[in-house]
Amino acid sequence: MNKNYIILAILFIILAGGYFLLPERENIKQMKPEDLMRDIVQTSRYVTTDQVAEMIIEGDPTLELIDVRNEYDYFEYSLPNAINIPMDSILVEEYQDYLGIEDMNVVFFSNDDILADQVWVIAKRMGYGSLYVMEGGLNCWISTIIKPEAPQETASKEAIELYDFRMGASMYFTGSDISTPSEEGAKPVTVKRKKKGSVAEGGC
């Protein structure tokens, strides 16, 4: 028996056992202020109302809309298939299941985008990913999607195309005349609790 092996074996035992003697270290998972600030400064978290409308119409299964206003407002008017998590209950355990679902893109919205932004920061700080904010909130939603403003005659082709899209979307959401191709509410948000890891299964 080589002496080196015995030394190595002892080293291993010390390394593995020594962990238990280390002082507790908590809050490791918390986000560093610098990281959080960097994320806040970035505007990539914003999605436009047009993008949201398109995703809803196409029935994008990865879209998860979360209404962060209070319950009363939510029942008054909200986006189709949106889930209501009032801002003050974002930390409640049972709502955590809605965040951090694998492959889901969470879009927060409120009347404007300030409240949604605040919730975004909290959720980000809790360590969730794939979080977005609908830019301009529901006010913007109404003014762009539900009651889009017709562009000038001289407007660019893109602007007119955008208007056409918005008009179509408006019909889709308000249900005025044309029958909508896919029935509303046919897109249940499957809530499966996220387990560890987010990489695809399989392989070896």
Binding site: F12, R25, I28, K29, K196, G197, S198
Partner: peptide
């Protein structure tokens, strides 16, 4: 062993997030 011990200490030092590791 090396991997297990290493992950343990990486986690302790906060260098690696256990939750993002594919189990």
């Amino acid at each position: 062993l090396v991997c297990m011990v290493g992950l343990m200490y990486f986690h302790y030092m906060g260098w690696i997030d256990y939750n993002l590791i594919y189990v």
